[in-house]
Amino acid sequence: MTELRPRRLTGSPLGWLIWGVVIFFFVNLAGVIVAVVVSSFGRRWFDTWLPQGWTADWYGRAWRDFTLGPVLVVTLEVAVLVVGISLLIGVPAAYALARASFPGRRLLLLLFLLPILMPPITYGIPLATVLYKYGFAGHLSGVVLANLVPSVPFVILTMTPFIEQIDPAIERAARMCGARTWQVFLRVLAPLSVPGILAAAILVLVRTVGMFELTFLTAGPDSQTLVVALYYSMSSAGIRAQQSVDAMAVIYTSMMLVLLVVALRFVNPTQLVARVGDEEK
């Protein structure tokens, strides 16, 4: 156990410089976050270091003014539906991609990579147009469909390497023991890929709750998620008090923070951003 000795992280002047930059980044980041939190609890805050007086009223006001209750319900509904459907569609596809080699496999991988690589706005606008044409947009169904577009490929790209590292001989062994396809899935593959499925589910959840553009383009008044409601409240600032927007932002961030802490218990932090890089090898 030689690793127990803490490695020297500092020492050279370059090392100090790097730590200086990191600390500067964190100090400012903390400033950004704390400024919002402080403001959300402040009575009045104008051209002083700290607000004059404290209050928690803004939270109640934000809750009422922005009808946060229904918004949170919508956010939850969208997130759960997107996670469930994208797993149902994505996991079998990931299995087939991991196991089979067939003509056009690379083309199919590219097809699944594109929705992740393109900025959401580029396909969001035509997608919203199509969804409006067929009457999906403006409702929950439209928001869910739009959010599935990057989520399904994301599940596929996260799960494919995961399934690849499960020895295919184990499935064959199950077959030779007399297991049917569904039994192989249920009794062998599912227990072995629970960590991967959990990771993919949480990642899709985090991304869906945070996804602004697609929801923004397809949501109607009754189908806004929290981010979109927050955006509207901010861009219409002046009508509402600044502090109540801050309060809403704090609610949003706390929610994301809880998700993050849960996520980090199950997944490698790198997975939070993408597994796309690994796919290209």
Binding site: N28, L29, G31, V32, I33, A35, V36, S39, F46, D47, W49, V206, G210, F212, V227, L230, Y231, M234, V245, D246, A249, Y252, T253, M256, L257, L259, L260, L264, P269, L272, V273
Partner: peptide, 24 residues
């Protein structure tokens, strides 16, 4: 990793507060 969860909207609000003319 924390800032990933902030999302663009909170970051924007924080930047306005923190870096604004009367910010910290």
């Amino acid at each position: 990793v924390l800032p990933i969860t902030l999302g663009t909207v909170l970051t924007a609000q924080g930047l306005l507060n923190f870096l604004g003319p009367t910010g910290w």
